[in-house]
Amino acid sequence: MYEDLVALGKSTLLAERIARRERVVNTANKAVGKKSRRGDGTFGELVPTAMAIAEDGLHVARGEIANIEIGAETKILAKAMIKQIDRVIGDLIRQAEQFKRTGGNPICIGIVGINQASSYTSYEGDREYLTDGRREKHPNQEATTAEQRVRAEAQPHFFELQILRFRATNIPPFPFEWVNLTQTEKEYSSLLLRLSREYDKRFST
């Protein structure tokens, strides 16, 4: 996401700070000296005594951060969504709260992938478990309800929460497709634009 923000080029402030290695992605996904659960991606101000580590092909360096300016949490719902929806929503909410407890005014982003395939196979050792549409619901039977609950219960805790709708059966050769690639790209690029504007608003000083 942070590389995408640079590529979008809508926040000169963000791009300049990244280019000067003043802002980095935290490899441990937390702020130094702040106790918190591990997020899926934290971005903030480099610890003054730490070193920013650049990687070939990437604009955003890695390093330890003193504070969190942007925090992201990602969840994937592939099957048995309703059975695990309470845990997933709880994890999302708790992570957003943890980002905010580090101090400052972090921008919290949630990303939730929801499978809409007509069937799905899971594996446990040599055993396979195929959804049957009855006791084991197919992903597309639960996707709408899962999305509604995530939006109603988790989304209010985030500045933005992106739903990524996809189809994956988990059967060789493991095909994957977006439900609507054009719409997904529009929603994601719009999120990046709003995030860029919000970054300039919150962290201009």
Rank of each mutant, 00 (worst) to 15 (best):
I171Y: 07
A154R: 05
E160H: 14
Y188E: 11
Q155K: 15
G113K: 05
E177C: 12
V150H: 00
G90H: 08
R151C: 09
I76F: 04
K201T: 11
K35P: 10
L181S: 00
M51P: 13
K30Q: 08
E97S: 15
A66Q: 04
P172H: 07
K83R: 12
T42Y: 00
L161Q: 06
H59M: 09
G133Y: 11
R197I: 10
Y2H: 05
G44M: 11
E3V: 08
H138S: 03
V150C: 04
G90A: 10
I18P: 02
L46H: 00
N170M: 06
A143K: 03
V112Y: 01
Q162Y: 00
R94M: 14
N26W: 06
Y188M: 11
N140H: 09
P139W: 06
E45F: 00
V112N: 02
I65N: 01
R87K: 15
A50F: 06
S204G: 10
Q98K: 15
N67Q: 05
A143C: 06
I111H: 00
G125R: 11
P106S: 02
S204N: 15
A80G: 10
D86C: 12
E16R: 15
E198G: 06
G90E: 07
D132L: 12
L191E: 04
K10Q: 14
A154Y: 00
E64C: 10
A80C: 11
L181I: 12
R135Q: 13
Q84H: 13
L130M: 11
Y188L: 13
Q148E: 12
S36E: 07
R101V: 03
G9I: 10
K201P: 02
A168R: 10
R151F: 02
T145K: 13
H138Y: 06
R165A: 13
D91A: 04
T74P: 11
S189V: 07
F203Q: 02
L181H: 10
E16C: 12
L46Y: 00
V60G: 04
L161P: 03
N170I: 09
R17H: 14
G133W: 01
V25K: 04
I114P: 09
V25D: 02
E198N: 04
Q148R: 15
Y2K: 08
C108E: 14
R149K: 12
N29F: 05
Y123R: 07
I82C: 06
W178V: 05
L191Y: 01
K137S: 03
R194D: 05
G110I: 04
